[in-house]
Structures are given as structure tokens and as C-alpha cells.
């Protein structure tokens, strides 16, 4: 009963408030932020369905910038039009960016202490280690798909990885040029090497 009352009482103020709360409590990066978005909008307030959220994630994959912000914009758009989009982004970004700035300022005032520098150095080492796993998780489904299609698609995907690293590290290719090369190579692989329909979402 309480949930259905909440669902009926949508307002822009409440929309902003929910994003604001997510913005100040989502310690732990994008995964935690997404978890909180699902928790609030799908399960607590029921303003969007699981299916709608899945579609939003799909569209977010072909949008530039931070995916989570793109999801925020679409959820806001669905609930209250363009005003809802803007309000949602600001609600999420203002508190989290302010805390980021406060942390940066705090760091600048204490960064002369070796203990602080060492703590941050170690945190970065940890992020480097974690990022290898995160990026591997991004790459793995593509390589797995390539493997299912045969050795040539798998080899082609691996070639994109190796060539990207060489062109960037050794020949200092511009980043935008490499994005273009990667995209064109991907199109070529799907059009002429795999020659099947791409995998559909479950």
C-alpha cells in the first residue's frame, strides 16, 4: 500500500531529491550507482519497469560519455520530459561532483605529507589492478563471441587489441583516429568475417 502511494505521488521535487540521495550515497563507482538507480526507480517507487531499464541500458551503450549519466537522462526524460532529464542529471552530478571537489581540495591541503601521498599512490596501484579486471570483463564477451564464430573472428578481435596498443604506444596515433579505425574494423568483421546476425540480448 505504501509503495503504491509513493508511485502515485510523482513530483519534480521528489525526482531531484531521489537523484540527489543517489549522488551522495553511491560510494563505489558506476556499479553501485546503477544498483541504487534500480533499487529506487524500479523496486521502491516503481516509476519504471525492469524492461524499460534494460532498453535504457541498451541505448546507453551507443551514446558518448558516462553511461550512468545517459541512463539518468533517459529516466528523467521518461518521467518528466526534457526538464526531467536536466533535473535528474543535476540531481546526480551536483552532490557527487561537490564531494569530488571537496576531496580534491582536501587532498591539495594535505598532499605535502608523505603518508597522504603514499596512501594515494597505493590507492592508484589498487585501481590499476582492478581496472585490468574491469577492462578484461568488457573485452571477454566480445572474444567469447568471436570464439563461438570461429578462429578467424577471434583472431580479428585480438588483432584490434594488439594493433591498438602498438599504434598508440609506439606510433603515437591520435585517439580519435584509433576510435575510427576500431569502429571500421568492427564493422568489417561483422559484415565480412562473421556474416551472421549479431547476438541478440537475452
Amino acid at each position: 500500500m505504501e509503495t503504491s502511494n509513493k508511485a502515485l505521488t510523482f513530483s519534480l521535487k521528489k525526482l531531484f531529491y531521489i537523484w540527489f540521495i543517489i549522488g551522495i550515497t553511491s560510494f563505489g563507482g558506476g556499479a553501485i550507482t546503477q544498483f541504487l538507480i534500480q533499487d529506487k526507480f524500479i523496486y521502491e517507487y516503481r516509476w519504471i519497469t525492469e524492461e524499460e531499464y534494460t532498453t535504457i541500458i541498451g541505448i546507453g551503450q551507443i551514446t558518448p560519455g558516462i553511461n550512468t549519466l545517459a541512463y539518468t537522462i533517459l529516466i528523467g526524460r521518461k518521467l518528466a520530459g526534457f526538464r526531467g532529464s536536466v533535473l535528474s542529471v543535476l540531481g546526480l552530478v551536483i552532490p557527487s561532483a561537490t564531494i569530488t571537489l571537496a576531496l580534491s581540495a582536501a587532498y591539495l591541503s594535505v598532499n605535502q605529507y608523505p603518508v597522504v601521498q603514499n596512501a594515494l599512490k597505493a590507492a592508484f596501484a589498487s585501481i590499476f589492478g582492478i581496472s585490468i579486471i574491469t577492462n578484461w570483463r568488457n573485452i571477454r564477451p566480445i572474444l567469447r563471441h568471436g570464439k563461438q564464430e570461429g578462429l578467424l573472428p577471434l583472431f580479428s578481435f585480438l588483432l584490434i587489441i594488439v594493433i591498438t596498443a602498438i599504434l598508440y604506444r609506439v606510433f603515437n596515433f591520435s585517439v580519435i583516429l584509433l576510435y575510427l579505425i576500431g569502429s571500421c574494423a568492427g564493422i568489417f568483421i561483422y559484415k565480412f568475417i562473421i556474416k551472421k546476425k549479431p547476438r541478440l540480448p537475452k
Binding site: 568488457n138 573485452i139 587489441i161 569502429s183 568492427g186 561483422y190
Partner: peptide, 17 residues
């Protein structure tokens, strides 16, 4: 196929980068 190709190509490049 082109959409999936662009997405996969971009993900491979960005992750490697």
C-alpha cells in the same frame, strides 16, 4: 551488424587504451 561492429570495435579500442 554495423551497430554491433561499431560497439565491439570501440569497446576493444577503449579497453585496450
Amino acid at each position: 551488424p554495423s551497430t554491433q561492429g561499431v560497439l565491439d570495435g570501440m569497446v576493444l579500442v577503449v579497453s585496450t587504451f
